[in-house]
Structure formats: C-alpha cells, structure tokens
Design a protein around this nucleic acid. Sequence first.
DNA 1: CGTGCCTGTTACTTGCGGTAACTCGCAGTG
DNA 2: CACTGCGAGTTACCGCAAGTAACAGGCACG
Lengths: 213, 213
Amino acid sequence: MNTTQRTDQQRSAARRRRELLEAADRVVLRDGPQASMNAIAAEAGITKPILYRHFGDKGGLYAALAKRHTDALLNSLRAALDAPAERRERVESTLDTYLAAIEARPQVYRFLMHPSEGSQSDQGFDVGKHSVPLLRRMGEELAQVIEDRLDLGPGSQQLARVWGHGIVGMMHAAGDWWLGERPCSRAELVKSLADLLWGRLAAAGDRVGGPGF
Amino acid sequence: MNTTQRTDQQRSAARRRRELLEAADRVVLRDGPQASMNAIAAEAGITKPILYRHFGDKGGLYAALAKRHTDALLNSLRAALDAPAERRERVESTLDTYLAAIEARPQVYRFLMHPSEGSQSDQGFDVGKHSVPLLRRMGEELAQVIEDRLDLGPGSQQLARVWGHGIVGMMHAAGDWWLGERPCSRAELVKSLADLLWGRLAAAGDRVGGPGF
DNA sequence: CGTGCCTGTTACTTGCGGTAACTCGCAGTG
DNA sequence: CACTGCGAGTTACCGCAAGTAACAGGCACG
C-alpha cells in the first residue's frame, strides 16, 4: 500500500498550496483585486494551469485567499468581543479593531469587500454561491455573540441576527467612507458610531423650525 | 447659422440615448450585472461602437444607468424622509421604502450595489472614480437631513455624516441579508432595525452567566 | 523494464472590452 | 446639379484575460 506516500504527497500539495496563496497575496496586495491569473502564476514562479489544478478557477482562488484574511480578521474581532470589559468598551474596541485592520491594508480590504464577482443567471437571486462573503460571516458571528450575551426578550434570535448584520453593515459603510475621505480620526469615528448605537439618535432634540428627522 | 438644426440634433441624440439606456436596462434586468456590451447593443438593435460613442466606455454606461435608478430611489427616500410625521415613524417609513424597492427589483439592486468594477493601480486608494456609488449618495443625503433637522450639539456636522453613512450601511447590509434569506417579514425587519437605532442595544440587560456583550 | 501518477510546460480557444477605418444618407452651398 | 461636410452606423480587427488540451519529464512501484 502507499498510505505514507499518500500523506506525503498530500502534505507537499498542501505546502505548495500555501506557497501559491502567499504569492497570490503579494500580487493582490500590489495590484489590487483585478490581479490576473497570469500575474499570480508568474509571481509564484510557475504557470497558469497549476493554479487551475489547485484552485479550480479564479473564484476558487478568490475563495481560498478570502478565507485566510477573513479568518484572521474574525479572530481579531472575536478577541476584542470577548475581552473582559464593559459592554460599551467592548463595542468600541471591536469597532476600532475592524477600522485599524482596514486602515492598515486597504488593498486587502478592497479585495475582500469588492470582489467583483459576476455570477450568471441568478434565477431566484442566489447571492454568493461559493464563499460566503466576509460581511455575512461577520454578521452571523456578531449575531451569535449578541444572542449569547444579551437578554432581548421574546424573538431574541431573530432580533439578534438582524442587529448583527445591521451593525456590521454600519461599521462597514462608515469605515469605507472614512477610509476614502479621512474626515476625522479613528477614535472620533469609533465614538460617533458607538454613540449612534447607544441611542443618541432617538435622544437628540429637534432643531428649531420644525419637527425633527 | 444652424442653431435650430443643432438643437434638433441634440434633441434626437438625447432621445437616442434614452432609448439605449432603456435597452440596457432591459438587458441588465434579464442578465444581471454582467451583461455584455454586445448583448446590450443587440437588444438596442445596433452595434457596439455606437454605444461607445454615446457613453465612452462601459463605466460610462454603468454610470448613466446607475444614475437613473439611483435618482429614482433617492426621490422615493426623500419623500419618505420629508413626510409629516414623528421621527420614529419617518425612520420606519424610510427603511420600508428602501426595502420595498430592493425587494421589488433585486436584479437592479444587485446591479447598483455590486457593480463589479475593477479600477487599476489605485495608488492612494481612490474609490469610485466616476459615479459616486449609490451608498455614498444615500449616506450624504441622510447626513444632510440629520444635520438639518436634529440638534446634536458641538461637532454636529461630522457626527451627522458619520451617522448618515452608518445608518445607510446598516440598512443596506440588513437588507442584503434579508433579501437572500427572507428570515422574516419586511415589517418585522423594519421594526427591529428601528429598535436598534432607538437604543435598545444599550438598554438591553445582560444575560445570566456573565457580563453582557 | 514498463506503468501509473504527479508536476510542470507550451500552445491553443473563446469571449469581451475597445478601436480604426470605411460606408451611407442627408443637410447646405456654389 | 455636383460637391462637401458631418453624423449615424457597420465590419473587421487588436489586446488581453480566463480557461483548456495535449504533451514532457521525474519518481515510486510491480
């Protein structure tokens, strides 16, 4: 039998795969999300067909690459979310962790968020067939934390999921805008968003001259 | 002089442009965001180069098409935002307007939100060079309304912009997720999101067994 | 030795965005 | 009327990227 050889081969294949992913990483970091398969292959010192043998198609490579960064980011966020501190402090620290990450590597961020994928003929609207995008995973994760930690009364599960996705979307959109315009410091942004979540919108008074928003 | 003829030509050119846009609309509605220029030209009964004469490049056509729908949606939202009612009611009606729109025409929605654009060599991170994407426009619009109508104390302008983009992002992400999974009715989603904005996150009690999120 | 099997290559096909160069019809002018 | 410009439209092409045969060497196993 050839079990030892099998595992040997699998091991080497896995190592090769990691190398290829790292090369792809470098290229994406340099060229942005529209990096070509040729370019990635060249960076890895090989040619296209091997890439296709390892990842199937461009979507497969995207999925693998995205998974790496997504997992890493989610781990950071989980750490911030689980830190021993008061709720508000945790929220702020989680927001800050996310913003720091996208600030540190905008190219990677753009690759993850704007994958420019085009699925065909979505009968019935079948978003994201292969890799559940980062936003969804973050939303589900946050929903889980909310449901585990907060007492929301009846319908808590549904509410937690809505909030999870909603809060993540808020963070994402605000971060995207902030990254493009840099209208304020990261700390200010974090505080403003936390204030929003803390109900300052409902608490604010109307401006003179008519009923408020 | 030939001014009348000039305007005649301009008029006809504008009409042609509208026809082309409507054809493009049909194709996008049928094929999704990855509709090819050839397909659009065929649908319009002509060939590619005319499209390029009218819109410059694919991005130009995208921008023109997006502007139509974006303007239409923004008008609906403005109407909901300006209705004579209490703040909470307005917020809910605005959320519902948006969700009803994306529910009614998911293909258009996907086209607007996931344009799959790939700009090259973003030195310095230059998001969305031509058409400011829908999310940004909605964010700015909402920011303006917030700043006009609410009394937020010092730093109100900055705060309003952050909130505008944040709230829009919340709405977008929650809507995207909801459209894919349909976990609840539109009304329930609206209420949950409004509750989130109304500070129920901060007000919720901790669950038994440890400090809350 | 031959036989699989994995890794790698070259060379191709297909399809799309975008463009150059030509044709046709039609106003206006001598 | 012939001539000239001009705008709408076409065919035929280029470049480039995704994806795919089909072939070539290395290395274990019988």
